[in-house]
Measured scan of single mutants.
Amino acid sequence: RGFLEKAAVKKMAKAIMADPNKADEVYKKWADKGYTLTQMSNFLKSKTAGKYDRVYNGYVIHLD
């Protein structure tokens, strides 16, 4: 289950990176699912340092 969630989160993160207008909708879905910042950090780990920082930081702001 965790692997599928991670894959889904990364897919949506890539969608945000391609079209930032989708961010609020995606952040709301993640918040509704109760994803914590720790979970998001783990889901968005990448071999490329900083690749998903913008998405993660946007989610931090959304939760605030």
Rank of each mutant, 00 (worst) to 15 (best):
L37F: 04
G58K: 00
A7L: 15
R1G: 14
K11T: 08
D19K: 04
V26F: 05
A18E: 13
L44Q: 00
K45P: 03
K6N: 07
K10W: 06
A13W: 03
A49S: 11
F3D: 13
W30D: 00
Y52E: 01
Y56P: 00
D53I: 05
I16S: 01
R1M: 11
W30S: 00
K10V: 14
K10P: 01
H62K: 04
K22V: 13
D19F: 06
T48H: 11
N21E: 11
K10H: 06
T38S: 11
D24Y: 10
L4D: 12
R54Q: 15
V9T: 03
K6H: 11
K14H: 09
I61G: 08
N57Q: 14
A31C: 15
L37H: 05
D53F: 05
F3T: 07
F3K: 14
K11V: 07
D53G: 04
N57K: 10
E5I: 10
W30Q: 00
N21S: 14
A8Y: 12
Y52I: 02
A49L: 11
K47M: 07
A13F: 03
K33I: 12
A23T: 04
D53C: 10
S41W: 13
T38W: 10
K14V: 06
I16F: 01
Y52R: 01
H62N: 02
E25R: 08
T48Q: 10
H62P: 01
R1K: 13
A13V: 04
M40Y: 00
W30T: 00
Y35A: 02
A23F: 02
K11I: 10
A7F: 11
A7E: 11
V55F: 02
Y59G: 00
A15C: 12
A7W: 13
M17C: 09
D64F: 10
F3I: 11
M12E: 14
K28I: 06
V26A: 06
Y35N: 00
A49Y: 08
R1I: 13
V9Y: 02
Y52T: 02
G2K: 13
V55A: 06
L4G: 12
W30N: 01
I16N: 01
M12F: 04
Y27V: 01
Y35T: 02
L44W: 01
P20I: 08
M17Y: 04
I61E: 14
A7C: 15
V60G: 07
T48S: 10
K10E: 08
K11M: 11
Y56L: 15
M17H: 04
K14W: 08
D19C: 14
K14M: 11
T48E: 13
L4V: 13
M17F: 05
S46M: 04
N42S: 10
K51P: 05
V60S: 08
L63G: 03
G50I: 04
I16D: 00
D32F: 07
D64N: 14
L4H: 12
R54C: 15
S41Q: 13
V9H: 01
D53K: 04
Y35H: 03
R1Y: 06
A7K: 14
A23Y: 02
Y52K: 01
P20W: 15
D19W: 07
D19N: 09
K6Q: 12
A8F: 09
V9E: 01
L44Y: 01
I16A: 06
T38A: 14
S46P: 05
D32V: 08
M17W: 04
K10F: 04
M40Q: 00
G58V: 01
K14G: 07
K11P: 02
A13I: 03
F43Q: 03
P20T: 05
A15S: 09
D53M: 06
Y56S: 02
T48N: 09
T38D: 11
T48L: 08
G50L: 04
A18N: 11
F43I: 09
M12C: 15
L37V: 09
K22S: 09
I61M: 14
D32N: 09
D32K: 11
A18T: 09
A15W: 07
M40D: 00
N42R: 12
D32W: 07
A7P: 04
L44C: 03
W30C: 03
G50F: 05
K29L: 14
G50K: 05
N21I: 07
F43N: 02
K6V: 12
K47C: 12
K11G: 07
P20M: 06
P20V: 06
M12Q: 15
G58N: 04
P20K: 06
K22L: 14
V60C: 10
Y35R: 00
D32Y: 07
S41I: 07
A49E: 13
D19E: 07
E25I: 06
D53S: 06
V55C: 03
Y59W: 03
I16T: 01
I16H: 00
N57L: 13
A15D: 06
K28C: 09
N57M: 12
K14T: 07
A31R: 08
G58S: 03
Y56W: 06
Y59E: 01
T36A: 03
A13R: 01
D64L: 15
K51S: 05
M12A: 11
L37T: 09
K28Y: 04
K51H: 06
S41N: 10
F3H: 12
A31M: 09
A49K: 13
F3R: 13
A7T: 09
G2Q: 14
K22D: 04
Y56Q: 03
A23M: 07
V26K: 01
A31K: 08
K29Q: 14
G2F: 12
D32Q: 12
Y27G: 00
L4S: 15
A23C: 07
K47L: 06
D24W: 08
A18C: 14
Y35I: 07
